[in-house]
Simulated assay, not measured.
Amino acid sequence: MKIAFYGSSLLSSYWNGAATYYRGLLRDLAARGYQITFYEPDAFDRQKHKDIDPPEWARSVVYAATPEGLRAVLDEAKAADIVVKANGVGVFDTELLEGIVAHSREDALRIFWDVDAAATLDEMRADESHVVRRTLPRLDMVLTYGGGPPVVDAYSGFGARRCVPIYNALDASTHHPVAPDPAFSADLAFLGNRLPDREARVEEFFRKAAAALPERRFLIGGNGWETKGMPDNVRHLGHVYTHQHNAFNCTPLAVLNVARDSMADVGFSPATRVFEAAGAAACLITDAWEGIEMFLTPDEEVLVARDGQDVADHVAALTPERARAIGARALERILAEHTYTHRGEQVDALWRESLQPERSAA
């Protein structure tokens, strides 16, 4: 079966937190026999910051972010059995979603893949003419990056025929334990781009913890933080490329996960970095959100913090021996239950079930 996938970027993780998610899932689906074409616009300098070459397991099409470029790639939708529009492309998001409906075959499976469901649903509540609300009746399903029952219920309330969370996971071929790198040495490290709905939580869970432990070393990576005032014991890294993530996670005593406001509010939303850290057998400290137990057991496989003081207390009490034990248990759990092989199996079964009536009727 042929998949036409319209997303932000497969080739670059620059300002594109979904890159690892796309790569892990689509590589597994390709191994199951799907023929995948990934369409991404040449926008936001992502092509200047590519961190993988076009992969063997997918055809990569980079198109000009112009009306002409858009028309050319949408015209290819008619050749696909499954047509996917992911949100967060950043250019032509409305036209792409409308376009996959208009250009795909009637017997094709049409999917909106929401990698920021909490934010999308907030927009839909505020705007009756929102493109997703208007398009839902003609979509076969909505798949989401996370969100659990609250997101499923909300999408169902808007009239989605089917909504299924496909959670982030671990790609063990790319994220795994490596030797420590002194460049990432710290007692606590955080990696994430500076975004408006994350900044206040980073202030609380990272900056406040660093201020409470002036004798300890803190490290922050991601775009945008260089202009953010931090205590003297915080070191800035800027953008950290995907190939550096293993060393970033393996080297510090612990790494921190801080959810964005919207994701923390709905819960059931483990970010990619949760699985990357666990895959590297890192000791993870995460802000508290509903549903963490679905993925990692608090105090055994992950440390959970309600605020910055909790983070500081965890770091102050953490020994290298306990950190290694927590990381080892996290790796074991994730490998057993939360890899992209598990997610690919879930998606494959879902799609084949959804297409079977049409194939049988034909």
Score class of each variant (00 low, 15 high):
58 A>Q: 14
201 R>W: 11
270 P>A: 03
324 R>V: 01
331 L>C: 02
299 D>S: 11
73 V>L: 03
68 E>D: 12
277 A>S: 12
13 S>C: 03
34 Y>D: 03
79 A>M: 01
80 A>Q: 03
305 A>G: 04
252 P>Y: 12
361 A>V: 07
208 K>E: 14
54 P>D: 15
290 E>K: 12
235 R>S: 14
313 D>F: 12
234 V>S: 10
301 E>L: 03
59 R>E: 15
100 I>D: 08
230 M>I: 04
117 A>Y: 04
313 D>H: 14
338 H>S: 00
274 V>K: 00
282 A>P: 05
100 I>R: 04
210 A>P: 15
14 Y>E: 09
118 A>F: 06
348 D>G: 08
319 T>S: 15
77 A>M: 03
171 D>L: 05
159 G>T: 07
8 S>A: 12
79 A>C: 02
162 R>T: 13
105 R>D: 06
283 C>Q: 10
30 A>T: 05
303 L>D: 08
74 L>N: 04
235 R>C: 12
182 P>Q: 09
270 P>R: 05
123 E>H: 08
218 F>L: 10
90 G>I: 01
158 F>H: 13
212 A>T: 13
8 S>K: 14
250 C>H: 07
326 I>R: 07
252 P>S: 15
71 R>C: 08
273 R>G: 05
224 G>H: 01
152 V>H: 05
228 K>Y: 15
137 P>A: 15
340 Y>H: 02
272 T>G: 14
167 Y>D: 13
87 N>V: 01
23 R>G: 01
249 N>G: 08
268 F>G: 06
263 M>G: 15
325 A>D: 12
221 G>N: 03
334 I>K: 05
126 A>P: 02
42 D>I: 08
338 H>C: 00
235 R>F: 11
344 G>N: 13
338 H>Q: 00
324 R>H: 08
57 W>M: 09
14 Y>C: 11
233 N>F: 11
181 D>A: 10
277 A>K: 02
211 A>E: 13
124 M>Y: 03
160 A>P: 13
